[in-house]
Design a protein around this nucleic acid. Structure first.
Lengths: 123, 123
DNA sequence: AGATTAATCTATTATATAGTTATATAAAAG
DNA sequence: CTTTTATATAACTATATAATAGATTAATCT
């Protein structure tokens, strides 16, 4: 057996925090700097209670930090490294999309050249 | 406004694939090389139908590749980069755990110095 | 003190999906 | 063709959680 589930569970939980579109939106809105809840609501267009809940989850995961300031509460990215994570995934998705469109083009080219397919050479 | 949700959604979906403990177990069991479904079932202890379903999800995400071979079907990691992702998260979690235990030690030290905590908040 | 505004908490509902059982498909063997 | 073995799929249950609305708490000002 590779790794015990107990070692994997925290990793799965961390990915789960990042697996919600709304939370990624909140994180992106914080990328430019510290913001209070109202500002986050305006920028994301999400409901107020909803944003609050997501912020709680993000704070519990240690991804954002919470700073009450007078009547409002400011949140800030505590772990910029999550943007590296997102970028890695984004790059990978983009690469895959590109590869797929390449394949499509090749298929079109083949169809035009040889109406009835013979053996093809890749790359 | 930061990134449009449409650009973020695929990233969230990708994280979602990695946010299940069972799927991480399957991926870990494939880390040492190509395996068929029976071997994966044995190594993870998960149910057959369950494993099959998770493998389908992983294959659709392009994370594993599928190779039928006679009666059985072999699966293989198609994107080793996911292990980099997991490692990044793992390191980060470990670092945080360490920091927390440091804080605990400091708190203990403080308690020893000041047996009865001074009441900082009135009300 | 009361009024105003901001943020959080507490149900509530709706949806997604993990896990399970039973069945279906597919490939080799008899 | 029938049986055996290996995967896949379908139907179902149970659980988790996202989104929402309403009540609640907290901080500032007059």
């Amino acid at each position: 057996m590779a790794l015990p589930p107990s070692a994997l569970a925290p990793v799965a939980d961390y990915f789960k925090v990042l697996s919600e579109l709304s939370r990624l939106q909140v994180l992106c809105s914080l990328k430019s700097g510290s913001k209070n809840v109202t500002e986050i609501i305006e920028e994301t267009g999400l409901g107020q209670a909803n944003v609050s809940k997501h912020l709680k989850i993000l704070a519990q995961a240690g991804i954002v930090s919470r700073t009450p300031q007078g009547v409002s509460v400011y949140y800030e990215i505590a772990e910029p490294f999550i943007f590296d994570l997102c970028e890695l995934v984004g790059d990978r998705l983009f690469t895959r999309l590109e590869a797929q469109s390449q394949q499509l083009k090749q298929l079109e080219g083949l169809r035009r050249a040889e109406p009835v397919g013979a053996d093809s050479k890749g790359s």
